[in-house]
Design a binder for these strands. Structure first.
Length: 782
DNA sequence: ACCGTATTCAGCGCG
DNA sequence: TGAATACGGT
């Protein structure tokens, strides 16, 4: 019927055309999951289904954008744009803007991110004069979040004896009280946190039958991506929305469920058949991503898990090369081995940096990898870390925006009432908070219309009301100016720009630049046409205002922002953030017991299985070549700890692994490492710098002409370079040189010194190449 | 109000 | 180890 279907394999096609009734698609890694989802939407549209009746839910903005783009490519812009496609949070935030009044929220309610929530909780803990060491904001936040995710309200939490007992046993009997206070504080601020978006959506569907019916009729076809990652609140929303039509299609891979720790429930996918007895299941088992070696390794690893849906992932791709195991004596050496391996692959095969990814279990491992790459002048980009929107200067600026839109937002008010400093001190703020509690008013309402008993010193009161007046003036301009004009106005009137501009320290300059970035984002938003929240339709020529910007921004993360840096870099990220991505060359590092698997996972089978799925995710990111690495010694929390190789390594069949050759006595392996480990071993060996100057040859070498891999050779191995260090010094601009692969060339330029000495060489017929001399094996031509 | 020092934390983190 | 925040002194 349709040309759409021609580009699918049999299993994919079946999953796409089964449009009616409950469908579960079990999609192995690299099996074309997104393809099925996008083609299914396109197919529905082709069948004549109204795009407004299709709801497609994803977990990340990125996934949602990607799907939108692909559907547009298939069916064109006008149809695709009208599909309700987005993350759980963004879609239900939209619904709550429309329906939230039933629960007492205005349509301009503010969304608190997890930092905002924690700030509120921290303040509450202080106000209650509780011991901050016992009641850690993070802990309390997590308890509240877990409760909301399980749809337990503050009242239910407080009155539930089992929960009370649990908190008593934990020595934190007042957690429930904090939950109650937190709830009223947010309510008073007209704010919802991320969990509230899902919680309140559930309440709407539970308590307001007309709302339930309205959205059941609206969303006739529902698709859910990454179903294995849904938590209870998300699961229940989907179930309720789908209850009438049961045209629900969930796609996922139980083997890639790695978010149990934040409430994702793998049982949701395992229980699909009991929820929808007449369901159809389709398994996508052909992997299009990786070599046979990689697929086989991953299959064998995941086989060790008990709790899973049976499937057999296979591939038609080549056998590929074996998995390289890099064995280092220390974490620093691990970094060096990986960096060298990347360097050699790059040089031998002229690959871009972006074909490499280094994946680790914890963010703290990124620094060593970054340093090792820097030593070899390999540019890299670290994902994660402090997100753009979490930076203080951005949060401060956004707090002014938030106040303009919703002056009752107390978190925002407390953040900037005295920043830049305007003489409103701690004492004043504390008094105001006490009064706000007493009169059950938001801080803003209290200051705007104070009860007659409230008395403040004249000058103090002038400052406070001055601030409030400024906020009100922002609010008054909101609907007349566009977002960008408004942003500029607020930045100037609040004094924030001046404050930062005067700070000439490097940090200050960087903060200022971040604000410029924010303005760019606002400008871009201002120039993007509006989507009607009720219908999803695109409305041209409508002024975009700052309150709309804020609604968008609350649900964005840095992953949605700094993507402008598309320069060619090696990617460094945690395994978690690598999910859904693929790279030709992947290095999974830190494969040690207590690190990967993490020490916290060793107590329960469930946690260990999740950890194994995480390893499975790591392995299946690789397309061409996989390398895994571990170190014998590693700094953790400031001390050197001795590590054992991860059990996961032994779960990969030996025949798939290229083991490090141990032709040298073991102590030789310390020769290249950093000085600390040398001291440990009581060896008097060259200092740290030396490792960088004379890198070892890693076992990743692919050139068949070279001798077999010898990862632990002493530093000056003739196989590394035909050029001893002194000879490197002899290479100068203008010289004719000979390269093993590129032939004769002329040195155009020299830069860097010592180990990082680089030559730009022009090879006739090939062009200009940058070569790091210690690797390039250049000979001076006659 | 502000700065420098002390202390604390370190598992992964979508929205 | 290192960064981010809290505190205490001026």
């Amino acid at each position: 019927m349709s040309e759409i279907l021609e580009k699918l394999n049999e299993a994919q096609r079946q999953a796409v055309v089964a449009t009616e009734g409950p469908v579960m698609v079990i999609a192995g890694a690299g099996s074309g999951k997104t393809r099925v989802l996008t083609y299914r939407v396109a197919y529905l549209l082709e069948l004549g289904v109204d795009p407004f009746h299709i709801l497609a839910l994803t977990f990340t903005n990125k996934a949602s954008r990607e799907m939108t783009a692909r559907i547009i490519a298939l069916v064109g812009n006008s149809e695709a744009k009208n599909v309700w496609m987005g993350t759980f949070h963004s879609v239900f935030a939209r619904v709550l803007r429309i329906e939230g009044h039933r629960l007492g929220y205005p349509s301009n309610y503010t969304i608190y991110d997890s930092d905002d929530s924690k700030r509120v909780i921290r303040n509450l803990i202080k106000e209650n004069t509780l011991d901050e060491k016992l009641y850690q904001p993070g802990y309390v936040a997590q308890r509240i979040s877990a409760a909301k995710t399980s749809l337990i309200s503050a009242d239910e939490y407080e009155s539930n004896p089992e929960i009370q007992e649990y908190d008593n046993a934990a020595g934190k009997p007042l957690t429930g009280k904090l939950y109650m206070q937190y709830r009223s504080r947010l309510m008073r601020s007209s704010a919802m946190d991320f969990d509230d978006l899902l919680f309140n959506m559930n309440i709407l569907l539970r308590d307001f039958p007309d709302v339930l019916i309205k959205y059941q009729q609206k969303f006739k076809y529902i698709l859910v991506d990454e179903y294995q990652d849904t938590n209870y609140a998300q699961y229940l929303i989907v179930k309720k929305l789908a209850a009438n039509n049961e045209n629900i299609c969930v796609v996922g891979d139980d083997a890639q469920s790695i978010y149990g720790f934040r409430g994702a429930n793998i049982q949701n996918i395992l229980n699909f058949k009991s929820d929808y007895p007449d369901y159809k299941v389709f398994k996508l088992e052909q992997n299009y991503r990786s070599t046979k070696t990689i697929v086989e390794a991953a299959n064998n690893v995941i086989l060790n898990n008990k709790n899973q849906i049976f499937k057999e992932v296979w591939t038609d791709n080549d056998e590929g090369s074996k998995i390289t195991l890099l064995h280092a004596s220390t974490d620093n050496e691990e970094g060096n081995l990986v960096a060298q391996a990347i360097f050699e692959h790059k040089m031998n095969q002229q690959l871009p940096n972006s074909s490499f990814a280094i994946l680790y279990r914890t963010n703290s491992q990124s620094r060593i990898m970054e340093e090792a790459l820097r030593k070899l002048n390999i540019p890299c980009r670290i994902y994660g870390g402090v997100s753009f929107y979490q930076r203080k200067e951005i949060k401060d600026m956004l707090a002014y925006y938030r106040l303009a839109v919703n002056p009752r937002d107390e978190d925002a008010l407390l953040r900037v009432i005295n920043f830049p400093a305007r003489g409103i001190g701690k004492t004043t703020v504390e008094k105001l908070i006490v009064l706000a509690d007493e009169f059950k008013k938001s801080l803003f309402d209290l200051i705007e219309s104070p009860p007659s008993t409230v008395r403040f010193p004249e000058s103090t009161w002038a400052k406070v009301t001055g601030f409030i007046t400024m906020i009100k003036s922002f609010g008054a301009l909101l609907k007349t100016k566009n977002a960008f004009e408004m942003a500029k106005h607020i930045a100037a009137s609040s004094g924030l720009i001046k404050e930062l501009h005067e700070d000439k320290t490097p940090e200050g300059v960087s903060r200022f630049e971040n604000l410029e970035e924010l303005f760019n984002a606002v400008k871009e938003f201002t120039e993007t046409p509006r989507t009607n929240p009720e219908t999803g339709e695109i409305e041209e020529n409508v002024v975009r205002t700052l309150d709309e910007f804020l609604q968008d921004v609350a649900l964005l993360t840095d992953a949605d922002f700094g993507d402008k840096d598309d320069t060619d870099r090696v990617m460094l990220m945690t395994v978690h953030s690598a999910k859904g991505l693929e790279f030709p060359y992947v290095f999974v590092v830190g494969l040690e017991e207590n690190l990967f698997p993490s020490i916290q996972s060793l107590n329960s089978r469930t946690d260990l299985e999740e950890e194994r799925r995480l390893f499975y995710v790591a392995l299946t990111r690789a397309q061409v070549k996989l390398s895994i690495a571990y170190a014998e010694n590693r700094y953790r929390w400031g001390n050197l700890t001795v590590c054992e190789p991860s059990r996961f390594i032994s779960e990969i069949p030996e025949k798939l692994i290229d083991f490090p050759k141990r032709s040298q006595p073991k102590k030789e392996s310390f020769m290249s490492s950093d000085n600390f480990s040398n001291m440990l071993e009581g060896l008097n060996l060259p200092p740290r710098k030396f490792a960088a100057q004379t890198p070892q040859k890693s076992s990743l070498q692919q050139n068949p002409k070279l001798p077999p891999p010898k990862p632990f050779l002493p530093p000056v191995d003739p196989a590394i370079s035909s050029l001893p260090p002194s000879e490197i010094e002899d290479i100068h601009t203008g010289m004719d040189v000979q390269h093993e692969r590129f032939g004769k060339g002329k040195v155009v330029a020299i830069e860097g010194i010592g180990p990082n000495k680089k030559a730009t060489v022009f090879f006739s017929g090939i062009g200009q190449k940058q070569l790091l001399l210690k690797f390039a094996r250049l000979r001076i031509a006659e």
